[in-house]
Nucleic acid binder design. Structure first.
Length: 684
RNA sequence: GCCCCGGUGGCGGAAUUGGCAGACGCGGCGGACUCAAAAUCCGUUGUCGAAAGACAUGAGGGUUCGAGUCCCUCCCGGGGCACCA
């Protein structure tokens, strides 16, 4: 059978169709009308029945979010997934090709607020709509394995997994400045802040100090980075690159600076310890605890300046903070740090160009070798010193690129060394003098999972005045959401669950005294971090999944989905997999062996949207051209990873092509010898 | 600013290692069939040229017997990251 036929939804039955009148016997509609009811009855894509001797393959399409009906983007993704799934079926594999719904999340809640309806009702209705469309689109999904993440039988295991993370110290609560979306009135993970805007609603994100739950993904930074070696050549290079950048591993040194009037030294992180001799000032992040502490030892007028500055910094929206040409601002705290290598006194500034949560929230500033430090030095009229080998006047000749002109500085024991050698040497010196050591830092932050919203997985923690943070025992799971009726869903900065008094107030699992539930829900990316395991048996009652089945089916052989999830979902799922590996639940460390990012379907050069008036409805296209023609068009329009402009695609042409193929097949296979089920025992 | 990926007819795109550029399809044009239309079939379709032929893969250079493919410089488009010390 040809590739063309394998990409066709209802192909392979020429002898049946030739019985019709010539005018209709090759018609794509006649084909689909005949075979779809048969599929419904036979469920040909059910997989994993016992004693199936065929080798296994797992083809996974990223599951949809149930808002509205399927669109052309879904149509392309599922057409591609189907090509792979049916190709393997015909090659004799037992193929698992499941589907489900990523059903928790904000849109349901917003719809509930706007229209006064139940988020659950809205969600299940959309699921039904999409499911019907998928069937009409003839996707080869295994309908016996459908899951919805908003079903208690699913999110129960989110809670169970959370507790395992908690036991391992991988889930923890801490107060921190968090990204806050003033519109959605909820916190956002770093990954959900795009150019300073909320990824959902494009509202400028602000900062807020809150105590929230985190997953310790940073503990896995090295493995997330190193295990990418397994994915090389199997995943798009672009995605690997994005993940690498996101993790942002950098190597350098920690250097301890004594602070005048402070018993403990302050450590800074630098990637250029070789420029230590060129440090001319010292900066602490304005919004760090350290800045507040240092300022408290400053003269009163400086304390006031600092307080004013801090307020200004906290008012600054993320988008302003990120604008590149923004002038450097800060306050001189009238305190000093001592350069450990030459005893120089460096003035200490509080500034917002230093981030509180990277490195140690403080830096040594070397304006001759760092553009940002140079900008600051110019704004505050601070000296600039080029670290250079004595006797050579070209700093580049020692490998020490400069960003600004300045006084040349003797770099003592580093004289004559090139950059790499100088770094090695200075680290050695620092280590000997106990002033520092080599260090590694990551851009990656821990994953903030608390959300102040209703429609999500309740966090299985109870707060007891006597026992503190108490994990809910496994046998009390799931903690189901209270009904939405009567709850105030309007965003107000705290979870609507707080209003469910009967639900919130529970006896402490440990001492039975009065206690309260955590009222936040989990980020929905928790749901999608392990759903590919739940498909093995979505109704399994004893565990999130059967390890034996996981050994047989996983990792996923081919994952298909949009590049929009290149960082978020794929990084989290990789993280979860590694944790599950460490906990002994799975035997692989990477969940998705191969990844395909299909392109977008656009219309007339721009993304389809209602407001732009260029929305193409899948149902209309199916009506006009038939399932096979649409799917063929999707696959044939170009390389799968490229965008498709639907205005360039002729579905009518595909239909013509199919009719011709049918006619030809009808002519050459007049004897019904063509086994309609060749390679597909499910259809026998 | 930094880092990726692209740029080939009217369109989507082929061209395995440096070896006949434009496969295949869409669209267009001409024709057959038809009273007519739709469907279908046949032919044709990079540009210039009557033809022979010449010129053509974003622009300019280079390497080579030979370049869409390799090297250098630049232009354009798309994407990612963006005070991460």
């Amino acid at each position: 059978m040809t590739d063309t036929a394998s990409s066709s939804a209802v192909g392979g039955f020429a002898d049946e169709v030739t019985r019709g009148e010539p005018s209709e016997r090759y018609d794509v509609f006649a084909v689909q009308e005949k075979w779809m009811p048969v599929w419904d009855e036979l469920a040909p894509f059910r997989s994993g029945r016992p004693d199936d001797p065929r080798p296994k393959k797992y083809v996974l399409d990223m599951f949809p979010y149930p808002s509205g009906d399927l669109h052309m983007g879904h149509a392309e993704a599922y057409a591609l997934g189907d090509v792979v799934a049916r190709y393997w079926v015909q090659r004799g594999f037992n193929v698992l090709h499941p589907i489900g719904w990523d059903a928790f999340g904000l849109p349901a809640e917003n719809a509930a607020i706007q229209r006064g309806i139940d988020p659950a009702a809205w969600t299940y209705e959309n699921i039904a709509t999409q499911k019907a469309s998928m069937r009409r689109y003839a996707c080869s999904f295994d309908w016996d394995r459908v899951l919805n993440t908003c079903d208690p039988e699913y999110y129960r295991w989110n809670q169970w997994l959370f507790l395992r993370f908690f036991e391992k110290g991988l889930a923890y609560r801490k107060p921190s400045m968090v990204n806050w979306c003033p519109n959605d009135q909820t916190v956002l993970a770093n990954e959900q802040v795009v150019n300073g805007l909320c990824e959902r609603c494009d509202t400028p994100v602000t900062k807020k100090k809150l105590t929230q739950w985190y997953f310790r993904i940073t503990e896995y930074a090295d493995r997330l980075l190193d295990d990418m070696a397994q994915l090389e050549g199997q995943w798009p290079e672009k995605v690997l690159l994005m993940q690498r950048n996101w993790i942002g591993r950098s190597t350098g040194a920690d250097v301890a600076f004594e602070i005048e009037g402070r018993p403990e030294p302050v450590t800074v992180y630098t990637t250029r310890p070789d420029t230590l001799y060129g440090a001319t000032f010292f900066v602490v992040a304005a919004d760090s605890d350290l800045a507040a502490e240092l300022a408290s030892g400053s003269p009163p007028e400086v304390q006031q300046q600092f307080a004013d500055y801090l307020e200004q910094v906290q008012r600054t929206s993320e988008i302003d903070r990120l604008s590149t040409d923004r002038p450097k601002t800060g306050v001189f705290l009238q305190r000093h740090a001592i350069n450990p290598v030459n005893g120089e006194r460096l003035p200490i500034y509080a500034a917002d160009y230093v981030l509180a949560d990277y490195g140690h929230g403080a830096i040594m500033a070397v304006p001759a070798h760092d553009q940002r430090d140079l900008d600051f030095a110019r704004a505050f009229d601070l000296p600039v010193r080029v670290v250079v080998n004595t006797g050579e006047d070209d700093p580049a000749s020692t490998g020490q690129a400069t960003t600004g002109d300045g006084e040349l500085m003797n770099s003592g024991p580093l004289n004559g060394l090139r950059k790499e050698a100088a770094i090695e040497k200075i680290i050695e010196i620092l280590r000997e003098n106990k002033h520092g050591d080599a260090a590694v830092n990551y851009r990656l932050r821990d994953w903030l999972i608390s959300r102040q919203r209703y429609w999500g997985t309740p966090i299985p923690i109870v707060y007891c005045p006597d026992c503190g943070e108490v994990p809910v025992p496994d046998d009390q799971l799931p903690i189901t959401l209270p009904p939405s009726a009567g709850l105030d869903m309007k965003p107000k900065g705290t979870s609507p669950l707080g209003g469910a008094t009967d639900w919130v107030n529970v006896p402490c699992p440990t001492c039975d005294g009065p206690a309260t539930r955590d009222t936040d829900t989990m980020d929905t990316f928790v749901d999608s971090s392990w759903y590919f395991l739940r498909y093995l048996d979505p109704h399994l009652d004893a565990a999130p999944f059967d390890p034996e089945a996981a050994r047989e089916w996983l990792p996923v052989d081919q994952y298909v989905g949009g590049v929009t999830h290149a960082i978020l979902h794929l990084l989290y799922a990789r993280f979860f997999t590694k944790v599950l590996y460490d906990l002994g639940h799975v035997e692989f460390t990477e969940p998705f062996t191969r990844l395909l990012n299909q392109g977008m379907v656009v219309m007339g050069g721009s993304a389809m949207s209602k407001s732009r008036g260029n929305l193409v409805r899948l149902s209309d296209e199916l009506e006009a051209h038939g399932v096979d023609a649409i799917r063929l068009s999707m696959v044939f329009a170009g390389p799968p990873e490229d965008d498709i402009d639907w205005s360039d695609v002729s579905a009518a042409g595909s239909r013509k092509f199919l009719s011709r193929a049918w006619r030809l097949a009808g002519d050459v296979t007049s004897a019904p010898g063509t086994d309609p089920a060749s390679g597909d025992p499910d259809l026998r």
